[in-house]
């Protein structure tokens, strides 16, 4: 049972949850009336995309994308300081197998996306504060009603 459960569910569960979170965020962005709720939905949408990317870079049995420290020192060992030291480790460090490390490329793309995401969230919150200053409310329907009333007066 464990094997079939893994084959049917685990293999795509991350991607399913990414789509579900994306749907939650999109639904909030479309239908929520409060502007801050809309922004929280936008952030959830964004993390869903990031979750999707990072899930695509996972490898079974792989470690974090940081090489072990002695790998950086192979050149000194190679130069003949102590040849009999760790011949196996030395050999392994020399031939880096890509399957042993998770894919660093999605991590880099998403790392910058998070920082830029919080900067854009800040801009959106600034716009929200200006809207509140001018209209006295954060509810979308009340803001639209006030804009319509102002148009009818003018």
């Amino acid at each position: 049972m464990g094997e079939t459960f893994k084959a049917n569910v685990i293999d795509h569960f991350n991607f399913w949850v990414a789509v579900v979170l994306m749907m939650i965020g999109l639904y909030a962005m479309i239908t929520k009336n409060n502007l801050i709720k809309k922004l929280i939905g936008m952030s959830i949408f964004q993390t869903a995309i990031i979750l999707f990317y990072v899930s695509a870079g996972v490898k079974d049995g792989a470690t974090i994308p940081i090489l072990e420290h002695h790998a950086a020192e192979t050149e000194q060992v190679e130069a003949g300081e102590h040849v009999e030291g760790h011949p196996v480790a030395n050999h392994e460090a020399h031939a880096i197998n890509p399957d042993d490390y998770s894919n660093p490329l999605p991590h880099v793309l998403m790392l910058t996306a998070i920082v830029v995401g919080v900067a854009t969230l800040g801009v959106a919150l600034a716009v929200t504060q200006v809207i509140y200053k001018n209209y006295g409310t954060l509810e979308e329907d009340e803001i639209l009603a006030k804009i319509k009333a102002a148009e009818n007066d003018g």
């Binding site: 293999d11 795509h12 695509a56």
Partner: peptide
């Protein structure tokens, strides 16, 4: 599959 080391991305 999630964790596939030979997926197109990896």
């Amino acid at each position: 599959n999630w964790g596939d080391a030979h997926s197109p991305a990896n």
